[in-house]
Amino acid sequence: MTVRRGVVYDLGYVRYDGPRLGRRGAVTATVRDGVFRILGFRRKARHKILPFFLLALAVLPAVAFVGFSFLLSNFAPDAESPFGGHAEYFSLIGTTVLLFVALAAPELLIPDRRYGVLSVYSSRPLLPDDYVWARFGSLLAVLSLFLLVPQFLMYVGFSALTGETLMGELIARAGEIPKIVLTAAVYALAYAPPAFLVAAYAKRKAVASGVYLAVMLVGMGLVAGIVQATVLPGHRFAALAALIEHPNYVRDWIYGRSATQELIVSQAGFAPWVSAVMIVTVAGVSLLLVLRRYRRSM
């Protein structure tokens, strides 16, 4: 009887002769890795807890609002409704988004520097600018989940509840979409670049998160004190340092709402466009400084 035996072939090293994606492939890989890193994918379960908890905090209220509106037969997603409208929702999740950015930006930048991984990037077809923009792209991609997903859930949900037909109502309310996207971009641009800047220079993730939150939250308290208590000439300009308030002021501008006097920048007498300019300026300067840092170290 013949016994069949398996044969093991040692193929040794096999050269790769398939397609190479070059710089485009390297950038795509960096963005994808950034998204995975922020959300804790390919890492232990504990790394997933915080980002998904914050994502749930950002998205679940929208689901709940649509559900309750259905139960209460209140289908008007505007400022007068018990749950507010699209503009109010940005305020509602503002702190959640801020906390997420405070955690995500250091996670994207600091481990690569701390563990020497930058030397791997430097040996691949990837420029320092590519690395910075790819990492920033990762942050924006995940931020869009926080800022856009709940808004579109509300948009579709309320459309389904109010209109004769879903499609008809979606079209009738299509004017909301540019406002939602523009406001989301304003929040992302106001929150993400300063966090990136801090993370680009801090050595520890916890320090970076702490410094960023201090600048954004505690800094606002200081600014409010200066604006209200100081009698020095020009003290109102201190209001421009209230970075966390600028997106709220611009959001009100986008939605055509009168500025609330709760906002320090409004109290200080600045027009909303000044806040828009501040957001763009701070974002631009922050990203330039991050690029400068990485052009020197990669």
Partner: peptide
């Protein structure tokens, strides 16, 4: 690391 090197 392979993807950074441009491999699909």
């Amino acid at each position: 690391a392979a993807a950074l090197g441009g491999l699909p």
